[in-house]
Design a protein around this nucleic acid. Structure first.
Lengths: 366, 366
DNA sequence: GATCATGTTCAAAGCGCTTTAAAAGTGATT
DNA sequence: AATCACTTTTAAAGCGCTTTGAACATGATC
């Protein structure tokens, strides 16, 4: 009648947790009834249910997640594999906010988030692992490349998943939530051209990443739509650090045919661009214009009332929420057709753009 | 003999996973032997072990994590509760790098990381939840406050944990990994005073946070050690955003007794300070000096060869590794006494500091 | 009083693994 | 051929839950 286990090596551990068996004994009910009472099954008398609920609360009972998972076949957890750039040892700063958004939703639905940060060349393994171990019911795919083997792999494995972004080369259909990157960057480019800018530099992310390729595309189409040719020397792509923005902008501004405007893929790199502009004795928004994509990171708010940067804006936290919601729906009903959610970025005008300093070429086609 | 289940609603799901029973049947062995072979128990004949290993590999067998956890009583997972500031909806950007570091270690030891991002006023609940559900074997505590109820709670619950930072008011003993914030900021302050600066502003984090209080302490002790009094008007504290750094620095620089130097708690806010300095037509490192704490975030590297900022440097990713290692050791042997790991920040001189522009007061004590 | 429908509770099986205690096999020694 | 020591394998119990199918009340209906 007493669970005193002498010589138990974990005796020092504080009071172990109450389990269903104990709780049902206290109540003088079967485990079945207690379990059903707590899980809202209708065949339990209301009085009994109340009694059980109350006892569960006072004894701080919470069903063991593993046992529950084993019995139901559902882990009540979703996996995020966040890639750590193997070349730069860098983890994309947008993940923090994306995850904050997704987490809100998981919390609400009782899901856990299990996360594994792996070198970007080991990601596939991480997915297989998740799938085989059965530790998650679904997966969010981060940072899709143009051709991304993970998507095929996950479809094959049969684990529900949602991609944050898209993979252009992937032929199959799948759930995704993405920003209309092409459109956003085309609009931004046209906006700059309309202000009289002719030499517009693109400070882009790594172009194996699908989002970066789409942005480049938008940039080029924007130029083309205004009858301008893209200058390959103005197009740069790398991991979006502050230093990359700075160094690239500095080099470009020092050249003999310096750009009068920059279009940038991340507010972090944009901070570097601004630094280079000011170091060159120039004034952002007057001498040189800058438009950046703004993921609305919580710690890098773009100005208070008037945005510092003119930006194509789309909240990555919101994207996290949407991905999570979609994934939970898919887990609940795996057989429904894939959904696609294309978010339009707002083009918000801030202080970093203005008319090109001196018209350099006639606006008409070459 | 065939597992074709007609009418099964999840028939579309790809091939379900092999389990121990199936694998042992294929091998003509008992589950016991197969389990032991794979888990490295000595009482299995070497030939058998090889045979089992090979079969496991070819059939892509991986033990079900939940079942294993249930049987062993260990979740092979650790929990991170990351606080989302309820006032600013902000998630601290250092988490991404911390987690990348911790994840390395978890991966190596076969642990999963389960993460829950909750409003900072709901954290206790999240811990209780983790503990009661038994979904993790241990917990990392992020962002300790000066008086932090979570630590007492976790000790009580008996779940192994490691704190990233410390809580000054907490009397009990517990595992922690922290930077010597007081020392770092004292040294930085003295460094600035020795360069002739007399009016040094402190741009600090929220002072309910333990790290911020310690830094303030170091700052004040540094001034005191050089016989200077702290001016309360120069001490600011808030959530460390770029805008906060900028706005505060701008206001201070516009005042009649502007500081000649800034000591800042985060490189993100320091970027804002630099912006304010340059907007005021001043030159950082000549007219105004800046020292910042640098967590060595991967996407905000402090310069390439010569650091942009003079900084007190300590890698938060490394802290993540250390916390994870400590936690895993504690899980393995919960009865060992708590360890403390105090990291010293390096004071690295960059381009943002220089002698005070014009000596304003005699260096001797007042 | 037998039958039925309905509401409520329960015993037992099963999820996939580990682990205990026992059994079976293998030589060597007597 | 019996005994012993040792190595290798196994059956079965158990981890904490859900869920199936059966049992037990209760009152209404014939």
């Amino acid at each position: 009648m007493d669970d005193n286990v002498p010589g138990n090596q974990s005796a020092l551990k504080a009071a172990r947790h109450m389990n269903l068996k104990e709780l049902s004994q206290i109540l003088g009910l079967s485990q079945t009834t207690v379990s059903r009472a707590l899980n809202g099954y209708p065949e339990v008398a209301e009085a009994t249910r109340q009694r059980v609920r109350k006892a569960a609360k006072t004894h701080n009972y919470r069903p063991n997640a593993r046992a529950k998972g084993l019995a139901t076949g559902r882990a009540m957890a979703v996996g995020h594999v966040i890639p750590v750039s193997s070349s730069h040892e860098m983890v994309n700063p947008v993940f923090a906010d994306f995850i904050a958004g997704a987490s809100e939703i998981y919390l609400r639905h009782g899901y856990d988030m299990v996360l594994s940060a792996v070198a970007d060349n080991r990601e596939e393994h991480a997915y297989r692992e998740f799938a085989a171990k059965g530790s998650v019911d679904g997966i969010i795919v981060h940072g899709p490349r143009i051709a991304d083997a993970r998507i095929g792999l996950l479809s094959e494995v049969g684990l529900p998943f949602v991609v944050h972004g898209r993979a252009s080369d992937e032929t199959g259909d799948y759930n995704w939530v993405d920003v209309n990157n092409r459109r956003a960057f085309q609009r931004a480019t046209e906006f700059l051209v309309d202000l009289g800018h002719r030499r517009i530099a693109l400070i882009n992310g790594l172009e194996v990443m699908d989002f970066a390729a789409r942005r480049r595309d938008g940039y080029q189409q924007g130029l083309a739509a205004r009858g301008l040719a893209a200058d390959p020397l103005l197009i740069h792509s790398d991991e979006m650090t502050e230093a990359y923005g700075h160094d690239t902008a500095r080099a470009l501004l020092a050249g003999d045919t310096a750009p009068t405007a920059f279009l940038c893929s991340s507010i972090i790199a944009a901070l570097g661009i601004r630094r280079a502009i000011e170091e060159a004795g120039l004034h952002m928004g007057r001498d040189v214009s800058v438009i950046t994509h703004d993921d609305e990171l919580s710690y890098l708010r773009n100005g208070s009332d008037v945005p510092t940067f003119t930006a194509t804006r789309s909240s990555v936290r919101q994207a996290g929420r949407l991905c999570a919601e979609r994934l939970i729906e898919t887990i609940a009903d795996p057989d429904q057709p894939p959904h696609h959610h294309l978010l339009e970025a707002e083009l918000t005008v801030g202080l970093s753009t203005g008319p090109a300093p001196r018209p350099s070429a006639p606006p008409a086609a070459a």
